[in-house]
């Protein structure tokens, strides 16, 4: 069997194990939080009797391990269960939200990844020039600000002052693709500013690292142009770390954008997860957590596979 396939199979197996451990951790974590769904939903209105009725109906009075096993049993049959809070199927709650989250992440990635790699190559090419310093300074400043701050600045400038883009990105199914893209310009720009620095710096560092290798010196000695040396000789060899950092940032774009979603009232997974944790809606928290974890596992796996494919030495090990 090709070593690549063995690796993929091994990693998938480990991934499933990781997901199971995560599901246990999430369950225990939410259990440890004070209060349960009945108390959180009723809030100040809770009386001992209504809380007890709530628990009876939703089977919250069963011991934790019984509830966990029941949930796991459902999951193995492909059933994510129903939300405890409003009884709706979780697949229905999560489906379109996850699609929205992916839509925002993909739109951002399409903009951010090429820009950061391009800037990274340029910065490596003109290392220590004024351009390199400027670009590093600019991207490092945007990454240093909290994402909500970047978002508010963009809203204040581009939405409130110049009236160019909407400040609220509440996309809904009735909108056309173009309307949706217009609605998400600001969150997309915010996230781009937040992720560019990381990927751009990594690209720059990886290329610079390669530039000190003997074969690059050879290329220079052959009289090749600097740009050609960097793009054709150095960059392909620097791909592996770049792919890894891109994967990490893509995972962040899917799982880590709760605050940006709140600032722009964007209907993604983030708000669902926050609300469900607040109300102790454990099945929804479990499902969302698993989806986020699966995203990380999958993207990491893909990054490794692509690293191997991009590197002949790993592709055919001796």
């Amino acid at each position: 069997m090709s070593p690549l396939i063995t690796l993929v199979l091994k990693r998938v197996g480990l991934g499933v194990l990781t997901l199971w451990v995560i599901s246990v951790l999430i369950f225990v974590g939410v259990e440890l939080l004070p209060g349960d769904l009945a108390e959180e939903i009723l809030g100040q209105n809770a009386t001992p009797e209504t809380v007890a009725a709530f628990r009876r109906e939703l089977k919250l009075d069963l011991p934790p391990h019984a509830r966990y096993l029941a949930w796991l049993g459902g999951l193995t049959e492909g059933d994510l269960g129903n939300s405890l809070a409003n009884g709706r199927p979780i697949a229905e709650l999560i489906g379109w939200r996850f699609a929205n989250t992916l839509f925002l992440a993909a739109s951002t990635a399409v903009v951010a990844v090429p820009i950061s790699i391009f800037l990274g190559i340029l910065a490596a090419l003109y290392r220590n020039s004024l351009f390199d310093r400027l670009i590093s300074m600019a991207t490092l400043s945007t990454i240093s600000f909290p994402d909500f701050f970047v978002a508010y600045i963009l809203i204040a400038l581009l939405s409130v002052q110049l009236l160019l883009f909407p400040s609220v990105s509440n996309i809904n199914p009735q909108m056309s693709l173009l309307e949706k893209l217009y609605a998400i310009v600001l969150p997309c720009l915010t996230l781009t500013l937040v992720v560019v620095a990381h990927m751009m710096r990594q690209t720059r560092a990886a290329i610079i690292n390669i530039l000190s290798s003997p074969f690059i010196e050879m290329a220079h000695l052959k009289g090749l142009r600097r740009a050609r040396v960097v793009v054709r000789h150095a960059f392909p060899n620097a791909l592996s770390p770049v792919i890894n950092v891109v994967a990490l940032n893509l995972a962040y774009l899917v799982a880590g954008v709760v605050i940006v979603e709140v600032v722009f009232a964007y209907p993604g997974m983030g708000q669902l997860l926050v609300d469900s944790v607040t109300k102790r809606d454990i099945p929804v928290v479990q499902a969302s957590g698993l989806i986020f974890a699966a995203t990380y596992v999958t993207l990491n796996l893909l990054a490794d596979v692509f690293s191997i494919i991009s590197n002949p030495r790993l592709r055919a090990p001796r």
């Binding site: 508010y152 809203i155 939405s159 409130v160 009236l163 909407p166 400040s167 609220v168 509440n170 709140v262 600032v263 722009f264 009232a265 708000q271």
Partner: peptide, 19 residues
């Protein structure tokens, strides 16, 4: 009805005529 939990987002949406 649009659910906007963040008070700044609500204020901006009103200022820019989205709500």
């Amino acid at each position: 009805i649009i659910g906007i939990a963040d008070v700044n987002a609500r204020t901006n949406a009103l200022k820019t005529g989205q709500i």
